[in-house]
Design a protein around this nucleic acid. Structure first.
Length: 552
RNA sequence: GCGCCCGUAGCUCAGCGGACAGAGCAGCGGACUUCUAAUCCGCCGGUCGCAGGUUCGAUCCCUGCCGGGCGCGCCA
């Protein structure tokens, strides 16, 4: 009988309830109890501060509360010892058989290990990237491509239903400028004021010309229409290809135009008007977002009768909600954080709870360094780094891992030289190497005819084995917290810890029999442990969209 | 002026109120007839920006200040 962290947490909660039922404690027992892995091994395999927290409501010193809980907890199968330590911590040590059983649990679960149901029943709409098809994706979009897709995978691993959505506009002013820029390039004229420069404009213009040799014969208006339509299609194809090469696939590409065509802006306006949050001023139509904490009210219909972009946002949000998503998540760059207030107000104006139904995640900027010097990103100077260039420089695996490894709250400095390196300074290689090393070991085991066969979990009693089992046991909790907090970088950090713990185990514990040595139950038990480690590394890398190589 | 994010080791960064704040890199010193040394071990390295507050307990929560990044359109 094994003991997972989740089971142990429940066992502690049960011990509290028992202590209460027996009259040892008079408190309201908490539903769940947090247990954690202590930093120092003297504090046991797991520890909980529940006694410290219950001390005040129980009206008893924390150590007495701890003793009351420790009693019933000591009877839990798999628990070797429970000690009251320090101000009132409960330090729990498992017996090695209970801990070793985890290897079987993981191997039997396979690719399902790490999956939970903590967010089951929720429907998430994750909107990210959402670049208009007027140019290649650049670094600002790419951070969210990596993090957004990883977040989608992590949410799915906790039982949530997830749709990845890309919102774009092919009817706006930006596309007009794009089309005009293509036309100018096709004619050999300089880039128009407010137009798009960059080599790709010339390439796309040429591609459109190749497909429509007579396009410049007609009027400029006719030509512009062709360049707009064909150029956008080519640009979008390029964007989708580069995303696919990066391992990111969207479920829905949502065109703002559809909102207009279906009359959804009018419907949204009607709904907000009926709710009493709309008023006219200076010839325009306003939404009173200040009612819901925004800095200033926002215009929905301009004095000239045109819809604002915000009006489309209003319709789009409603569209998502009506498609059944209870969690509308929008990922934006730091330069768009000013939109948070109005979006939240919008959700509130519809009667939603902006703390529940809407989440706006803001990703800070990424600075690239090469040869120790910053690559200054400037659209105007044409020095933006595109997704394709990033993949060319360091590969899709390193690119995804590097961008998903940090909290999106932090601006990050990425050293391209480091991430291109095939050495252990490069975290993605450190983790992938651990997987490849295991794969190699498993191939050797197969060559030796060594099979896992029966597991004797109590044999996994080396401290290195205990550490490895302890880290392996954390995986489901790490995934769940990454999903809960919308912080997939926790998975990457966890994998680095796991890889390091494995390397230390490997260094100290021989897995395969030497030479003509006969395979023992210990060899077989370690084979279970190694396979379990491989599974967790593979599952974790999969959550980040990074490959788990068999050989390196 | 107002708002959001950040400030932790020389560098890049972890740390969802718990015990003595961690990792990698860099620096120094070790370990390869044996499963991938792309690895491992040891040493060095910190007033967690500053000052208050809340708490049994604060890097974490609150307030103020300092420093850096990014924003504050009837633009899209």
């Amino acid at each position: 009988m094994g003991v997972t962290p989740a089971e142990l947490s429940e066992a502690v909660a049960a011990a509290v309830r028992t202590a209460v039922a027996d009259g040892q404690l008079s408190v309201e027992a908490p539903d769940t109890v947090r247990i954690e892995r202590p930093k120092v091994k003297e504090h046991g395999d797991y520890a909980t501060s529940v006694a410290l927290q219950l001390s005040k409501p129980a009206g008893r010193p924390p150590r007495e509360v701890a003793e009351a809980i420790a009693g019933p907890l000591r009877g839990t199968p798999g628990v070797a010892s429970v000690e009251v330590a320090g101000p009132g911590f409960l330090n729990i040590t498992l017996d090695s058989a209970a801990q070793g059983e985890l290897a079987r649990t993981i191997v039997e679960a396979g690719s399902d290990y790490g999956r939970t149901t903590t967010l089951a029943g929720h429907r998430f709409n994750l909107e990210f990237v959402s670049a208009n098809p007027t140019g290649p994706l650049h670094l600002g979009h790419v951070r969210w491509a990596a993090v957004g897709d990883a977040l989608a995978r992590v949410l799915q691993a906790t039982g949530a239903e997830v749709v990845r959505e890309y919102y774009f506009n092919d009817a706006g002013v930006q596309i007009d400028r794009f089309a005009a820029s293509l036309l100018a390039a096709a004619k050999g004229l300089p880039t128009p004021e407010d137009g798009y420069g960059g080599e790709y404009i010339g390439e796309i213009a040429k591609a459109v010309l190749d497909g429509h040799p007579a396009v410049l014969q007609g009027t400029d208006a006719e030509a512009t229409a062709v360049f707009r339509r064909e150029g956008m299609a080519l640009m979008f194809a390029e964007i989708r290809t580069s995303l696919a090469d990066f391992g990111v696939a969207f479920d829905v590409y949502f065109n703002e135009k559809d909102l207009h065509d279906k009359g959804e802006l009018t419907a949204a306006l009607d709904r907000l008007t009926a709710a009493g949050h709309v008023y006219p001023k200076d010839g325009a139509t306003w939404l009173r977002t200040t009612t819901f904490g925004d800095d200033k009210d926002r215009v929905l219909v301009k004095a000239d009768g045109e819809w604002t972009y915000f009006a489309a946002d209003a319709a789009y949000y409603l569209d998502k909600r009506e498609r059944g998503f209870d969690r509308v998540v929008i990922m934006l760059g730091a330069d768009h954080h000013g939109y948070v207030g109005r979006y939240r107000a919008l959700a509130a104006a519809y009667g939603d709870d902006p703390d529940v139904n809407l989440e706006i995640l803001i990703g800070q900027f990424v600075n690239l360094f090469k040869d120790g010097k910053p690559l200054r990103m400037s659209k105007r100077a044409g020095t933006t780094v595109t997704l394709e260039e990033l993949v060319d420089a360091i590969g899709a695996d390193a690119g995804r891992y590097a961008l998903a490894r940090y909290s999106t709250d932090s601006t990050i400095d990425l050293d391209l030289d480091l991430w291109a390196r095939r050495t252990s300074d490069n975290p993605v290689f450190y983790v992938q190497y651990a997987h490849a090393r295991i794969a190699s070991l498993l191939r050797n085991a197969a060559d030796l005819g060594l099979q896992r066969a029966e597991l004797h979990p109590e044999l996994l009693d080396d401290p290195r084995e205990g550490s490895l089992l302890g880290v392996l046991g954390e995986f489901p909790r790490v995934v769940a917290s990454a999903a809960e907090l919308r912080e997939p970088h926790r998975v990457a950090r966890y994998l680095e810890e796991l890889a390091g713990t494995y390397h230390r185990f490997y260094d100290a514990c021989r897995v395969l029999p030497h030479g003509d040595e006969d395979p023992s139950d210990l060899h077989r038990a370690r084979l279970w442990l190694v396979e379990a480690t491989r599974i967790v590394l593979a599952n974790g890398l999969a959550l980040l969209g990074v490959s788990a190589p068999e050989r390196m």
